[in-house]
Nucleic acid binder design. Sequence first.
DNA 1: GCGGGAAATGGTAGCGCTACCAAATTGGCG
DNA 2: CGCCAATTTGGTAGCGCTACCATTTCCCGC
Lengths: 342, 342
Amino acid sequence: MTKPRSRRGGGRPTIADVARKAGVGAITVSRALREPERVSEELRRQIQAAVDELGYVPDPNARALASARAEVFGVLVPSLTNNVFAEVVRGIYDSLSASPFRIQLGNTHYSGLEEERLLQVFGSQRPAALIVAGIDQTPASRKLLESAGCPVVQVMETGPDPVDMMVGFSHLDGGRAASEHLIEAGYRRIGFIGARMDPRSQRRLAGYRAAMEAAGLFDPRLVTTTPVLSSVSLGREMFRDALAKVPTLDGVFCNNDDIALGVLFECHRASIAVPKTIGIVGFNDLDMMQVAFPSVTSIRTHRYEIGRRAVAMALAAIAGNRPEQRIVDLGFELKRRESTAR
Amino acid sequence: MTKPRSRRGGGRPTIADVARKAGVGAITVSRALREPERVSEELRRQIQAAVDELGYVPDPNARALASARAEVFGVLVPSLTNNVFAEVVRGIYDSLSASPFRIQLGNTHYSGLEEERLLQVFGSQRPAALIVAGIDQTPASRKLLESAGCPVVQVMETGPDPVDMMVGFSHLDGGRAASEHLIEAGYRRIGFIGARMDPRSQRRLAGYRAAMEAAGLFDPRLVTTTPVLSSVSLGREMFRDALAKVPTLDGVFCNNDDIALGVLFECHRASIAVPKTIGIVGFNDLDMMQVAFPSVTSIRTHRYEIGRRAVAMALAAIAGNRPEQRIVDLGFELKRRESTAR
DNA sequence: GCGGGAAATGGTAGCGCTACCAAATTGGCG
DNA sequence: CGCCAATTTGGTAGCGCTACCATTTCCCGC
């Protein structure tokens, strides 16, 4: 059973082995695998039989080298543990699992420099498409994206100036909607609590500010932010700070649900009535918000769908029919719940 | 400025361009990049200058093809959104970010068949190492892992029969410790609530059962499980079911923290006193458990560290010094909190 | 001064696949 | 019946890199 094996490779079957066994040329095997309609049905069957018998799997490296194009989607997100990006990534994986495309996932840790480095690395692979989170790339990153020679989808946000395509929603509008809701519910001293103030959180804050100023309620002392990574425990601490700073606080808009949950728990602990004494609004609408007691008002965002749409647009562009709508706004939804039902 | 570019490639600089510019042979450039100590300092400097000037980045596909070994870690996890695996994956990414290795991440969706398929795909890339979650691979998957020709690390669990190496802890012991803690705290009608009963949850259940039987407290009606994916809202529903089934329930061990949180919220909603009427223990110890009100007792697991250790062991094996300890048990820690402080 | 070995460098021949073009075969139509 | 075009198949020449071996250079010790 000692097969003759090539000098270097690990002895795995190659396209030449399949071709020999099927009695055809190597190139015909290649075609049968990639564009079956261009090969007669009979040869196709023979080739398939040989493939099955040998357990042949094409070498993606050789394929990428020969075709100057890897079947890889490069995906860049700022965090892997943040549920929001995990959902986007899940949508991407689910949409790509049935395709021949692999995924190269990079974690930028919210760093522009790291993003540049990763784009450099990804670019060297000649990916089939790039999906990046956010619209605030550094000039260098933007240049890398523009010269990548493949479809690029910026996700999570929409903005006026896409590198190529965009899928997301307006964080500014989301922040404004959340804040207006609190105002309409009758809250007046409404604080903003935001951790890890990335560009999207900044825009949510801008939306908050716009709503508050329009209502003549804005006061800089109501705003509490930190660059620290967001967590439930941080939400609790920040809420205590905010309350110490402004004891008359009667509502909070949190830049995400983790923070909101921390606020809710602290209210319980300090016997602060929600929504009577304090109204709470979160952002993203994680599953737990509707289950919390009291349930927490939040801005529902369509993270999974963003991932799916990004892939769909990229695939369309690869196939040659670039979607005419280059900027897709998936919007958001204000979920009114007990935490603001005064 | 029209550079002469090769017929196919996208006109990016190749190793030959660098070699020409530096006035050396291509192979010397290759060596300077991979094993600098084997090239004289002078040539190294010249080469580095040429690399910088041209912006040369090696093509990983060509490299993989020529060396029959890709600088890729294949990573297989059952879920991307479950915080537990997200943390493991984060540990892996952080440990590998400074290395030349890329990561190929696959999502098995808790399916053995999908795992086999992905291992097949990953195998075709000749990865430098494979990291897979769990120890219950199908026989076919196991065979694929054994014949992968690279270091393999099974993570999350420890067991008697590693394919190669293992990093994790005993879920059975964890389940037992959680249950014994409830028993010691004076609870008697202690339920088990478990969603998505994967093999690890099954072993936590076995640990629960062992502890309960040893105390003469086991009753099958106390066990409530479902194959449905875990979530906070599901935890709430399952707790209501459990309570309907056994109204005298006075404690619950949940197979993870999402479920525990759902139970806690339902207790608030139904005005059930925690820990007085019901004691709650979770599993994994997410950040929020210590912030919850009341704070929730949980089994702290070292997910991030598992990811880091797995990479460290794999890198050591690649470098030729395979760690003598092939099975690393990182243990767990019972965090006693208010939810069981009767 | 010379042989021998270590260190540094280069040439050649692929790795497994596909782009490009050529050749062979078939079919339609005037 | 013959010509042209469409369809199907194959050969050749790389893609960009590294393994393997050859060559050159330099230094040491006797």
